[in-house]
Amino acid sequence: MAMASTVHAASAQQSLMGTCNTEATGKKGDERKAFMSSCLSDGKKRQQERMKACNVDATGKKGEERKAFMSACLKK
């Protein structure tokens, strides 16, 4: 189970990096560096908030039902 969480976290981080990288098109040097830092930080905060909300909504669910719910919830 811990491995699944690690894989999901890596995928979320990779997705966030790709999104920020796309949005940074045309920026160079310090401007790009500052933008990427801000974008990645904001994205992590949004992901943490989404995880908290999904956890609350998943109360009472267990096993495969919880796993499927969390996966769908976090993709929204």
Results as ranks from 00 to 15, higher is better:
residue 1 M to L: 08
residue 2 A to W: 08
residue 3 M to D: 15
residue 3 M to V: 09
residue 3 M to Y: 05
residue 4 A to G: 06
residue 5 S to H: 09
residue 6 T to M: 11
residue 6 T to G: 09
residue 6 T to S: 12
residue 9 A to I: 00
residue 9 A to N: 07
residue 11 S to Q: 07
residue 12 A to E: 09
residue 14 Q to I: 05
residue 14 Q to G: 08
residue 14 Q to H: 11
residue 15 S to L: 13
residue 16 L to H: 02
residue 17 M to S: 01
residue 17 M to K: 00
residue 18 G to Y: 00
residue 19 T to C: 12
residue 21 N to P: 01
residue 23 E to T: 09
residue 28 K to G: 02
residue 31 E to N: 11
residue 32 R to S: 08
residue 32 R to N: 09
residue 32 R to Y: 06
residue 36 M to R: 12
residue 37 S to Q: 15
residue 37 S to M: 14
residue 39 C to A: 10
residue 39 C to K: 03
residue 40 L to H: 04
residue 41 S to Y: 06
residue 41 S to I: 01
residue 44 K to D: 11
residue 45 K to L: 09
residue 47 Q to L: 10
residue 48 Q to W: 09
residue 49 E to G: 10
residue 50 R to H: 11
residue 51 M to K: 06
residue 51 M to Y: 03
residue 51 M to H: 07
residue 51 M to W: 02
residue 53 A to P: 01
residue 54 C to S: 07
residue 55 N to H: 10
residue 55 N to Y: 02
residue 57 D to L: 02
residue 57 D to H: 02
residue 58 A to P: 00
residue 60 G to V: 04
residue 60 G to Y: 05
residue 66 R to E: 12
residue 66 R to D: 07
residue 68 A to D: 08
residue 69 F to L: 05
residue 69 F to E: 00
residue 71 S to N: 14
residue 73 C to I: 04
residue 76 K to C: 05
